[in-house]
Structures are given as C-alpha cells and as structure tokens.
Design a protein around this nucleic acid. Structure first.
Length: 487
DNA sequence: CGCCTTGGCAACTTACTCAA
DNA sequence: TTGAGTAAGTTGCCAAGGCG
C-alpha cells in the first residue's frame, strides 16, 4: 500500500496544464524556478485578496500557522459553532485533495463560495479551479448552494478614503461548476495514478507557457544554441519551421543570402562576423541633437487595486517617479528627479516639477514611446497643466527606433531593449550592482512597500534611496548610449 | 466572350516588441 | 495588465493575361 499523495487544488490545476509539471512539483520540487511573469502579476495584484477581506469586516481568517490539518479542524469548528461568520481561506480536504476557499458565506441552508481573482474577466480555466473547490468542499460535507467568481471591475473609480466598494464584480458560475463535477474525480484519480509512476513523457509545447508559465521550463526545454533561430527579430512561425526543417539550429548555420528579410540577414551577418555594426547616420543624428538635452524616464504604477483618488484598476502609466539627466553642454550633466513617498497623491506635484525642470526647449530623449503616453495620461488628469505637457510631448526624441535601425551587436540576441543594448555599449553600468530594485517591476513593488503605513521608517528610507538609484541609472544609461553611439 | 489564374494594392487583423 | 508602435499575415478587389 503506497502512501496517498496529498494534492492541493493548485497542484491539480498545474496537472491540468501538464502532467509532467505536476509530477515534477511533487517529486522534484527543487528544480522549480521563479518565472518573471508571475512576479510581475504578483506586484500588481497582491492587494486584491486583502481588499476582498476588508469588504467583509465581520469575516474571520482561517490561518495555517499551526498547520493545514489544524486549519481544517478550525474551519469545521467555525461552521458548527459560528455559522453566521463569513470565513476567509476556509480549508477542506477530500480524497487526498486540499483546497482553501477565498470566502465562504453562510446562505440559506448552505453556503455561497466566492473565489477572488485579480484579473478583469472570467477565464475558462478559473472554472476548473472552482470545480475542484466545489468538489472538495461538498465532498467533505459542506453544502454549497452557489459559487461566485469575484473579479476586478475595470470601470471602478476609486473615490478615496479606503473605500473599495464596487472594486469586485461577482459573477455566478454555479452552473458551469456543476457541469464539471463529473470530470473532477477523473482528474484526481488519473493524477494519483500518474504520480506513482515514472516521469510522464510530455513534449514541450503551448502548455509550457499558457495559461501560466511553467516553473520547470529550464528542466524540460532542450539547451538552446548560443544564437537560437528565435533570436531573429519577429521571425514568423512559418520561417522558423522552414529553417528547422533545413536542419539549421543556430543563426550561424544559415547560409549568406538565404534570408529574404533584410533585418534577419543583418542579424545573421553580424552574428557570424562577431563584430557590431553602426551605421554612421546614427552618430550624425545623435550629434545633431541640440543642447540642453533632457534624458527622461518615468516609473509608473498600474495596480489592480487603485491607490490614488480618481484612478481605476490596472489604469496604466500612472507615474510616481521620474528621473532626468540634464546635459546643458557636452559632458556638463546634472541630475534631477521627483519621488515623494510621503505624498499621498503624488501625480500633481510630480507633473509640476516636471514642467519646471524640463523648461521650454531642448530635446527630451527617451527610450521607447512609453514616456509620451505617461505625459498624455498626466494631461488627462490635470487639464490646467495640459498645455505645458503637450509642449513637452512635441520635444520628445525617441532613440529606440534610431538605435534599432542603425545599430546591432551580436550580444543583443535579436533584442533592442535598453537592457540588451546597454551592456554592449557601457558594460561598466551594471544593473546587477543595484540592491533590490533592478527593474521596473521591482520599482513598483518597492514603491508600494515604501508608501505602506505598516513599513518602518528606516526601511522606508532604504527603499526610497534604492528607488532613486535605480531610476537615476536608467537615465544615465541613456546618456551613455547616446554618447557612445555619437561617433 | 467567358472562365480562370496571377499579381498588385489597400484595408484590416494578428502577433510581437518595447516600456512600466 | 496596459498601450503604443510596427511588422507580418489575411482578405477582398481589380486589372491584366492566358486560354478555349
């Protein structure tokens, strides 16, 4: 008799995505790696659960400090003795499967179960998720009359003062969940059988990235050649297949003249030669930029739970910080910026200081069109500043397309993002040297922590300086790129 | 002339690449 | 998750050309 394997709900969901993934999670968890995609959604969405609980002040959280079996017992005690109290994270186990339900309300003779999601719509795979919860909780003796999915209502506008009434939209999915009930025991028993067998052989494919990126990609995916075909910019699936069929694995395998796309051929040629190419036109264009030059970069927030009055969930491009290196004459550079973690509504003072520092003339140098859309967003919020902001927009010079058209280095591996370009031009500027905040995502997380009332003052100060260092490095990177390409 | 294919062009859609 | 920008792919239309 083998020991029963305890499946959590999330393990069943990962098994539905790919059996091999579930097998690895159970038997080889040490191979797991963090994937970038999940940290990003986490940074934006991690407050949703808290707000859902805030909206039900009479509710009680079932913790699991004393282990999950204690949580199961406590759930039962609460349902028996305090049936009217809504429960957060009510915990049930049935036939070797464990789930924690986001919210459980007493309703009529049974319960209403609510699953809270940080997305803005009902996704198909959420229904499988809820079907498992329903199967386990009803199976273990808790009657469920209704299942709801609470997702973010994008049209919600935050009125301020911590009032999040209306942030979540409740959708009745009881019928869809019941329709899936016959599938759940099949999933469970087939997973249990699969888990007591050797590693399932599953080819890599779509399921490795959809609907969620698998943390075992590095284990399953074959080692990539140094310059994989996928590093050809915007390569189509057709061409990729054609090249693979011809037996090419690495960009350097492709014979000269084979690629019809000029940009592909350029990347191939430079990769083979190992030498970067700079079209002199670029140097000329950059040298022609007049002074004073303003190198500008924003850090913005687009959180699932809006924190500023008048903003909406996932409303993108809301700035909380900017950095600007001002080059008054060649090499004569001063640093300016805005960040105020004590200001509860920072956008307006941020915009005012921007207008003040950027003055009336001189190119505003950015990398990508992002900064332009941030300024547009600011103008929407403050119509009285709109005139000045529109004038800033007209001065913006986006150097990304210029760099893309005229510069390539083999180490860029088909990407012209600033993080791919910078190391080839200014290796001494290293994002890895920064503590904690080394990309835009981390900046958002740091800002959220810095403004949180629960954060201690020394920690706030540390986060504040990390944010300054990061944003400053971003604009300094642009200065270096422009300087090193201006020849 | 009818019938078909082919190439070119514009309009539209999709997919990817930046940024946070 | 958003949004701007763009390359690539799809579709529909028309004219030109081959052929019986």
């Amino acid at each position: 008799m083998t020991k029963p394997i305890h499946l959590s709900k999330s393990r069943i969901l990962s098994g539905l995505q790919c059996e091999k993934r579930l097998w690895l999670e159970v038997h080889r968890p040490e191979l797991k790696e963090d994937s970038a995609g999940t940290t990003f959604t986490f940074a934006l969405g991690n407050m949703v659960g808290e707000v859902a609980q805030q909206l039900v002040p009479e509710g009680k959280l079932i913790g699991w400090e004393n282990g999950l079996s204690e949580a199961i017992k406590e759930t039962k005690r609460m349902i028996d003795n305090n049936p009217e109290t809504p429960l957060f994270e009510a915990t049930f186990s049935y036939k070797g499967v464990l789930i924690r339900a986001d919210i459980l309300f007493k309703e009529d003779a049974g319960h209403r179960m609510v699953e809270v999601k940080g997305s803005t719509s009902v996704k198909d795979y959420y229904l499988d998720d809820c079907a498992v919860q329903y199967w386990v909780s009803t199976g273990s003796g808790c009657q469920i009359n209704k299942v709801e999915l609470a997702h973010i209502d994008k049209t919600f506008v935050y009125p301020g003062d911590g009032n999040y009434q209306g942030l979540l939209k409740h959708v009745d999915i009881t019928n869809e969940v019941i329709a899936r009930q016959e599938d759940v025991p099949r999933w469970v028993s087939s997973f249990q059988k699969m888990l007591s067998s050797p590693t399932p052989e599953i080819e890599i494919g779509e399921q490795c990235v959809t609907p969620y990126e698998c943390p075992f990609c590095n284990f399953c995916w074959p080692e990539e050649p140094e310059y994989p075909l996928t590093a050809l910019p915007r390569i189509s699936q057709n061409l990729l297949k054609e090249l693979r069929d011809k037996g090419f694995q690495d960009i350097r395998d492709i014979p000269p003249g084979y690629l019809s796309n000029d940009n592909h051929e350029r990347v191939r040629r430079i990769t083979v030669s190992g030498k970067p190419e700079i079209n002199p036109i670029l140097g000329q264009k950059l040298q022609d930029l007049p002074y004073p030059r303003y190198y500008l970069d924003f850090e913005t927030l687009g959180a699932a739970v809006p924190i500023w009055k008048g903003t909406s969930p996932y409303q993108a491009h809301l700035p909380f910080q900017w950095s600007c290196h001002v080059e008054n004459a060649p090499g004569n550079i001063v640093h300016e910026g805005y960040l105020d973690i004590y200001e509860t509504e920072p956008m307006r003072p941020l915009g005012e200081k921007l207008l003040e520092v950027l003055g009336k003339s001189g190119p505003i140098i950015t990398y990508s069109a992002f900064e332009k859309s941030v300024i547009t967003k600011l103008a929407d919020f403050f119509p009285d500043l709109a005139d000045g902001l529109f004038k800033l927009k007209e001065r913006i010079v986006d150097i990304l397309p210029m760099v893309r058209d005229h510069y390539y280095h083999p180490d860029m591996h088909g990407s012209w993002s600033i993080k791919a370009v910078l190391p080839t031009l200014a290796p001494e500027l290293n994002y890895g040297d920064l503590e904690e905040v080394h990309d835009g995502t981390a900046a958002q997380a740091a800002y959220m922590e810095a403004i949180s009332p629960g954060t201690e003052i020394p920690r706030k100060k540390a986060l504040e300086s990390h944010l300054w260092e990061y944003c400053k490095l971003d604009t300094l990177a642009m200065v270096k790129i422009v300087h090193n390409l201006s020849r």
